[in-house]
Design a protein around this nucleic acid. Structure first.
Length: 253
DNA sequence: GCTCATGTTCCCCT
DNA sequence: CAGGGGAACATGAG
């Protein structure tokens, strides 16, 4: 699930149910504890008061009056208030009036603790500017500087953070740009159009907390009709930048 | 049994 | 050094 819009949904869940609460007991599975042992994570969080959360790319940043908790959701992560018991629940924070649960089937995501600003910077050192907060100017500079395909540029979290396989395909489809095009080959019209597409895809998907598989979205067509929602042509499918990629050979050039 | 999965990292090439 | 390709991670779903 988790690309930027999903994590934006998790941020809302966190702020609605967990912000302002005090952490009681903490349970963390060893398999998702990334830069500290489960015990150390528990010690760092227990008794702390949770602030409102922040998001950078696909990272959820949860400050407290002490250490900061960082969550990355991998491919299958989720954040659930008062989740029922489930074999994929990987971390539980007992709060004043319920439990905040990090669930992650594949354990490709994880939990980090930053004890100070230095550790926070270190953990996020390779995360580029957030795709919805970056200025148009910086977006154009960072993307056009790349030598490889436009898809790999947008997928690279050090260029701009938050986009994933679905949102990249959706943004390129809206901007009518083929995913294999060299990033440096985009025209002075195409680059700003792509920036607008990225923003509009991420903003509308963030409202619902996931990339909607609705009619009119490429994401809806890739699993269903396989036909371009704009022109009806048969969608192309191939591996680009290491990921299964869909695009319309007729309207994306 | 097989393939594929909304992510990231690491290693080996070119 | 920058990118591309592939494997690895862990656990399913179809």
């Amino acid at each position: 699930m988790p690309e930027l819009p999903d994590v934006e949904g998790f941020r809302r869940t966190f702020d609605r149910y967990a912000a302002g609460k005090t952490v009681g007991s903490v349970h963390v599975d060893r398999g998702v504890a990334r830069n500290a042992t489960p015990q150390a994570i528990g010690r760092a969080l227990k008794g702390r008061s949770l602030s409102r959360s922040d998001r950078k790319g696909k990272w959820l940043i949860c400050a407290t009056d002490g250490a900061t908790l960082l969550l990355h959701f991998g491919m299958t992560g989720d954040l659930i208030w008062n989740a029922e018991d489930h074999p994929h629940n990987r971390m539980t924070l007992e709060l004043d009036d319920g439990d905040l649960v990090f669930r992650d089937m594949r354990k490709l995501g994880g939990v980090w603790i930053a004890r100070d600003a230095g550790e926070l910077d270190q953990t996020l050192a390779r995360v580029g500017p957030d795709a919805v907060k970056v200025s148009k100017k910086e977006f154009l500079e960072r993307v056009s500087r790349r030598r490889g395909s436009i898809k790999s540029a947008l997928m690279d979290q050090t260029v701009v953070s938050g986009l994933g396989n679905l949102t990249v395909d959706e943004s390129l489809w809206r901007a009518r740009i083929a995913p294999k095009r060299a990033a440096a080959s985009l025209s002075d019209d195409e680059l700003p159009a792509l920036n607008r597409s990225v923003n509009s895809v991420l903003r509308s998907a963030s409202k619902v907390g996931h990339v909607p598989g609705r009619r009119g979205w490429l994401t809806g067509a890739r699993d269903r009709s396989g036909a371009c929602p704009r022109c009806g042509a048969r969608l192309e499918r191939a591996t680009v930048a290491g990921r299964t990629t869909y695009w319309c050979p007729s309207c994306q050039t």
